[in-house]
Design a protein around this nucleic acid. Sequence first.
DNA 1: GAATTTTTGTAGCTATTGATATAAAATCAT
DNA 2: ATGATTTTATATCAATAGCTACAAAAATTC
Lengths: 233, 233
Amino acid sequence: MQVREKGRIVKPHGTRRGRGRPRAFDRAAALAKAMDVFWAKGYDGASLAELTDAMGINPPSLYAAFGSKEALFLEAVRIYSAREGGPDWDAVLDASSAREGIARLLEESAIAFTQRGKPRGCMIALGALHDTGENTSVCAKLRACRAENLAKLRQRLERAVAEGEIPGTVDCDAVASFYLSVQHGMSILARDGASRTTLLAVARAAMDAWTSLTSPRTGEHDAGADVRPKRGR
Amino acid sequence: MQVREKGRIVKPHGTRRGRGRPRAFDRAAALAKAMDVFWAKGYDGASLAELTDAMGINPPSLYAAFGSKEALFLEAVRIYSAREGGPDWDAVLDASSAREGIARLLEESAIAFTQRGKPRGCMIALGALHDTGENTSVCAKLRACRAENLAKLRQRLERAVAEGEIPGTVDCDAVASFYLSVQHGMSILARDGASRTTLLAVARAAMDAWTSLTSPRTGEHDAGADVRPKRGR
DNA sequence: GAATTTTTGTAGCTATTGATATAAAATCAT
DNA sequence: ATGATTTTATATCAATAGCTACAAAAATTC
């Protein structure tokens, strides 16, 4: 369990132990507390004072154990994606059908976004939406997470095409974008106080589009829904 | 055109003119510039330095003309809702049918969220999602705007019920929440770089759920989509 | 032109931001 | 026990946050 390798730090921060004074706090517990603060306030909105207060430690301990506010946030995102927070995308999407996988994803999201005693909505979706110049890497990280989720949806749909669940005429990228859009929107609804029942209804409504979205005829659109944009550019 | 009435300020700030040195900048143009900064960076992410720089004025001029950063933001939200930015909800929803109204709303949103030279996504949806204690009133204002939009959607659906367009068994609140969720999610997709084409496809996909959502049988759900939540609480 | 009123730019205010220097305290290795 | 090592708490750093005091400048009114 060596810490360094060829002079480069392998493990992030504060993972090595041994000789000196032992750490007086539980690193994992402190990280979990920090995650809650970031989840509730976002990356920029969470101040060091709030973080250290919630974690029950002082700034030097935070920096010794995690490196920086940014590194702490990235670790918080990691455990959020893995354990707490949103659903396990891989596990949920691995259902026997794409339809059931996506339905479960939305329902698990509705549940995760309305946990009692936890911040509402998704930390990945809401954690850092505005690039201020200082949080650029954090914004990029979350954006990459969302892009990865979009890819997982698209790949699951492509697998459904390959398995014959849905026809090959389906625009997997568009359908994936639609369901990701619903999932993201649910985060904002949850932030605004929407109940779990409401979010589950939203999830169910989104699945009502499944049959139409995956019907053979795609690429042509029915008349009557024609709209001419007014403020187009 | 009096400014004060019974000692209370009627017009916000900087609207009165007359005797002293004339203002050297265009208040409306400066407000438009400020709106762009708030739109791109959010309320907290937009610093006074960025605002004054974009507006081409100094801090004292900003405070004399607008009162405070918060008041400036609220004015920016007002003109965003009225002219720039998102679609005119009242006008768009006043289509001959609820279906067409909502379809147009989503399409106009897709267009508004991907304007060249403008920040991506919706200022109302993304402007201030995290309550940090200092921005509470701003968060509440945007939340109220979103709640108002939800109400407009619901009322348009209720009108559709009254007019016989859709059956009375439709859960107007759930359907409204669904479409608002899609609209909000489109803002995040736009922030992540989704093209106008993609957002229009999302809008169309959402409308594919219309027939199912507004079919007579509601309240009962088809089997096969049964899901048992794993991490429920 | 003189008095009044308002805006302008400079410069600076207090508070808070993320991040550290320092030395005492607590452990392991010898 | 002694020395080496690491964490602790206090106090503080420079930078920036939102905001304002001040006096010169530019207009109206008398």
